[in-house]
Design a protein around this nucleic acid. Sequence first.
DNA 1: AGACATGTTGCTCA
DNA 2: ATGAGCAACATGTC
Length: 277
Amino acid sequence: MPELAEVEFFCQRWHRAAAGQRIVRVLTHDRKKILRHLELPVFRRALSGATLLSSATAAKQMLLRFTGGAWLGIHLGMSGELSVAPPTHTPRKHDHLVLVTDRHALVFNDPRMFGRVDFHLGREPPHWWTEIAPAISSKAFTVAAVAAFLQRRRRAPIKAVLLKQERFPGVGNWMADEILWRAGIHPARPAGSLQPREVGALWRACRRVCRDALDKIAGRGRTPPPDLNANIPRTWLFHHRWRRGGRCPKTGRPLAHDTIGGRTTCWSPARQKLPSS
DNA sequence: AGACATGTTGCTCA
DNA sequence: ATGAGCAACATGTC
């Protein structure tokens, strides 16, 4: 599930519950995969008794800062979720990490185990965090930067290029399709074939989809929706993309599906055309 | 039963 | 050296 806005949603969920609280217990489960980057004894010692100071997201990553210079990184992978349970919570099958405070248990659950937990000790945040590309909502995300990136990746389908975290941090499969759909660009178009006005449309669609997704899904600090996607409007491609026989909410025409850039892709042929066809 | 899944990485090949 | 494409990862669901 988790792309940009869903990651923000989960991050806020943990933070709202436990900011300023002390971790009294650290429960870990799987150690082979999700916790593979951790020195478990060091990790436990640093987090036990530490207080959660701040939480942030960038791209699909999360970074939580604790007292004592302890930094906890979380990537939700394909199926990861963060939830809040009573402090008596007994870890279920795929609860890989549970942080217990006096009032809550912070639970990281991930059945497919593509997620990851990172840990860093020090005054400064870890390198992998500071090296994340500037957010799509930032001033550094310019049309010129997008144009240059598309030129470098000119032979790849634009769909595949949108999934590159080094330029489109936080964009995942459904957001990439949503962006292309808004911009009216066929996902199989070679990135280098986009005309300047199309690059502009793509840039605007990136900003708009990210901003609106954060607003609808994460609530931007307001009371968050109980159900992740409950507030995504029916006018988005999102709600129609998976259903067989789904129709474009803009044109009412049938949607198309294919594998592009190695990923299942959905588009509206009525408004996203290939020049040759 | 088999296909498929909202992500990333590491490999091969050009 | 750089970029494109694909298998692999582990498990659950339709």
